[in-house]
Design a protein around this nucleic acid. Structure first.
Lengths: 236, 236
DNA sequence: GATTAGACTATGTATAGACATTATTGCAGC
DNA sequence: GCTGCAATAATGTCTATACATAGTCTAATC
């Protein structure tokens, strides 16, 4: 059993829920009942329940009590790997090939480019991530020079723009989209794909508060790449 | 500004971190300093910091102090949609076509089938999810009849096995793998794909404690399907 | 100089009480 | 029966205090 009292209380409650003894909608014992049961103070019980609330297992309603939450929409924590780290952890050597890098105005037709640019210029970077000299992923990135003026003076031929941004620019929000697509002729060529053209496309836009920072599209050959997502109701 | 004191303290600290004023590794003020600053009790400050710890923004070391966490590996919360709900929310009609359903022993060569079966039989279900009568996803599922004996008597031609399991079996852990693959001849045929064969493959295995419950492989035509993942350091 | 023992101190856990907030419940009056 | 008000009860927030625990730092020792 766990070491501290509030963790013990939490895990006892959690067991009831996960075993199905306390189904969704079930009213768990009131704080004062748990206080009596465990002979502890209300704050301790409160702490235990609060952590189950933040884990999404319990919802609380004043005056009414605390209830087992309805099963949530399936969700999972997706690890989006740092490409360089992932390659090196497999014992391969990472290298980067800068394909193009130019400063330009947003394309008028593209709504999202204008939003990202916020009245200023964009930095468009295209590069290829290589593992042991073989193509691993194709990156197309747009950076707002309004949000990140420093980027204008960085030459991204050594450090990939993603890593540089992560190290220098704090961000508050990111949205990812994951699709499967067939690589275009040119993309297949760059990624050295022959017959199998299925690729995993990961697009991400990153915000700092209301401000758009960057937008990236990463193309991974389907055969060589997995995303792993993991879900457990509570940490540990 | 927020209503309650500990939320106000939390959001002030969070601002310092997200704006970059307090970079990773920075030692934030000690609890007793914050107590003096906000003229409140230590428990209140503690609650504020504890919530930043559970959000991963701060790490604490006894005797040394509390520090801004190193930027984590990029991670995001991935919503794994209930297929039926997703289709219906787009205003399309959902239907299900049961392709096969049989009870069998695990295939000896497949390690994971033996693990899943746990000495008993498996229920193998194959079905097609349709939106407005057109193929939307192909599902191949194995259910452990040791873990879920009730499943043996369910005919999955009305309710898809995923929804049924979600409603009846509590689970504790799930692991997902996402890849892009080319559909096989037969799969392309079932999904009515012509030229573009790129598909998103989602595999999931679900556990209840140490017990394996089910394993599923979902194949989505690449063009018609997106997974969206979202990340923000703190809820709201 | 390197190692170890002990003092120090910030965090970790827990208590017992207080008052605030709010949704429910039940009662009184229409 | 319906409406509205007041009593009630459960959670939400906060305080002041206490002791435990475990890294860190210093200083004494080898």
């Amino acid at each position: 059993m766990n070491s501290t009292l509030h963790l013990r209380i939490r895990s006892n409650i959690q067991k009831q829920i996960l075993s199905g003894s306390w189904p969704p909608g079930y009213r768990i014992p009131f704080e004062h009942e748990l206080v009596a049961r465990y002979r502890c103070s209300r704050m301790t019980v409160n702490k235990a329940i609060a952590s189950l609330v933040s884990a999404g297992l319990i919802v609380r309603r004043r005056r009414a009590g605390s209830f087992v939450a309805e099963p949530r929409v399936q969700s999972a924590v997706l690890e989006i790997p740092d490409i360089r780290a992932k390659i090196e952890e497999r014992g391969q050597t990472y290298s980067l090939q800068l394909l193009s890098r130019r400063r330009r105005k947003p394309a008028g037709r593209r709504e999202y480019e204008r939003t990202l640019a916020a009245g200023g210029d964009l930095l468009a970077v295209r590069c290829l991530h290589l593992a042991n000299g073989r193509p691993y992923a194709l990156e197309e990135r747009l950076i707002s020079l309004v949000a990140v003026p420093e980027a204008a003076s960085i030459d991204f031929s050594l450090e990939p723009p993603g890593s540089w941004l992560l190290r220098h620019i704090p961000w508050t929000e990111a949205e990812h989209r994951i699709r499967a697509i067939d690589a275009s002729e040119e993309e297949a060529d760059l990624l050295e794909l022959s017959s199998h053209r299925a690729c995993l496309e990961l697009s991400r836009r990153t915000l700092r508060g209301p401000e758009h920072i960057t937008r990236v599209r990463l193309l991974f050959p389907g055969s060589g790449f997995d995303l792993v997502a993991h879900f457990a109701p509570l940490g540990k």
